[in-house]
Amino acid sequence: MKGYEYHKPQTVKEAIDLMEGLENAKYIAGGTDVMVLIRQKKLAPARLISLRNIGDLNYMETEGGLRIGSAVTYNTIAKNDFVQRRYSALADAVKKVGSLQIRNVATMGGNICNAAPSADTACPLLVLDASVIIAGKTGEREMSLDDFFLGPNKVALEKGEILKGFTMPAFGENTGSAYFKHTRRQAMDLPMLGVAARVTIDIGGSEVGCKDAFCTVDSISNILKRLEDENLVCEDVRIAMGVVAPRPIRARKAEEALKGKVISEKLFEEIGEIAASESQPRDSIRGEAWYRRDMVKVLTKRAILKAVDRVIRPDDTIWPDRLW
């Protein structure tokens, strides 16, 4: 490992200035991607510019939506109860990144800028309609996350630009979301496959919240069966998949097929099939393509079920996960 300069700017402007004119400089947040690349000799920066001390990248606001600064660490997000309840898919993801040590330093900004096809927060942010705020020399701009991803390890940042943060709209009580990360290990693992879903259910003003005693112990499958007569309609839906394409992608056909329909587990299975047909997983040492495609089916169904479950039984943090 060769030596490098290390800078700790206090403001976004300072950071951008430090980057100015230097080909071989690199922003570093938690460093959990950057340092690995340096050790693997895939990166040899002459200057590292740390974003950790910049207050403007370190915010978390929950009024009228969710706004998170790019330098907020996973553990900070994971501890936030509002994110847990209203942006559950994101909470699912941040709790499962790496290990506690990684989550103490790694940031969502780093995850998204690094833009690995396996980035755990990508799918949740996609289904939560996140947009990104980008700060550059001449000011700020905003774009949807979907447009921000250009390809493997490629995002729409111009030279010197900093990803400032993420903005997500507010969702009502009738919206639930979930993220499923398929791994071989319970920690320190990248997803072999990841699927996130957000579902908004038309509850026609009535309260769907399941209240009887079965609710606490029964499976969501059974609960859905009992709610069959209610003809609950899927008002809006997002499905995103990771590791099945060069970048995290939305399963648009699957979304299309679910939107406006009366929900049932059987329908979710069909949605899973459609999502699988939209995926293009590859064979790699991390997993075989046929298996990954099969898992898109299973996890899409499970993610939607879980998202619905979170609408019907919003206090699911209290109950152990029944959807193992």
Binding site: R185, Q186, I285
Partner: peptide, 27 residues
Amino acid sequence: LGERMIYDKGYLKNGNFLDYKMPTVRD
């Protein structure tokens, strides 16, 4: 259930703890 060294035609493909799936404390 998980550990294996993946050799492809004599080349080790997973010589690191990311891809060599030794169980963690969570497992």
